[in-house]
Amino acid sequence: MANTTVQQDTQVKEPIISFGKKERKLLLDPLNDNNPITVQVLGICSALAVTTLLLKAVTMALAVIFVLAFSNLFTSLLRNYIPKEVRMIAQLIIIATLVTVVALALKAWDYPLYKELSVFVGLIITNCIVMGRLEAFALANKPWPSFIDGIGNALGYSIILIMIATVRELFGKGTIMGWKIIGPTSEYLLNTSSLSWLSWYQPNNLMVLFPSAMFVLGVIIWLHRSWNRKLIDVS
């Protein structure tokens, strides 16, 4: 988190909600130069287990956007009242409450999906991105920029998650969001139909297994750093 932009509260009177250059930077920076996953190496834990299917990854991404934006907002609102000694615990209570809200809502809204994501919704609590942003940004900034910062960082996380999930689902199952794209049509595994020109592809089971997430992420980092060369690790 060395190059994170920590801005102190300014005394200048500003409108509470505005969207200017500063906010745009807060929103877009985490998508590339300061991506939480590929640059800051935070929040990978939950990123890998839920990326076998795009639907799971998108749900997870939405959950993280909600939790990160609102925990940033609430922490920022309370920043002048939180006693220093219990800072961690107070932040964790805020995060855990929001995550439980997400879990309860998901259970009511889509139970099969809730079952599939199982413990990984709970693990958003220990997603280091959330804690990292609260410490590095929300504790020192006003509510509105904090809210934007939360959304920006969660979006940076979501983009990587969705990229990994797309690759894994497409090559692992031959589908995107459950729609058949490549591979033997009509029936899974058997019954190759000759009608589809993409039917030669046999879904590669390795892509569904856990380690492939690591490979895909490694390659994404490789591509990202070849393109954005200032991020190369020189140590």
């Binding site: 009242y81 939180i82 006693p83 000694e85 615990i89 209570i93």
Partner: peptide, 10 residues
């Protein structure tokens, strides 16, 4: 203050 704060938050 600390204790009251944590209690209220919880």
């Amino acid at each position: 203050y600390t204790i009251i704060f944590v209690l209220i938050l919880s």
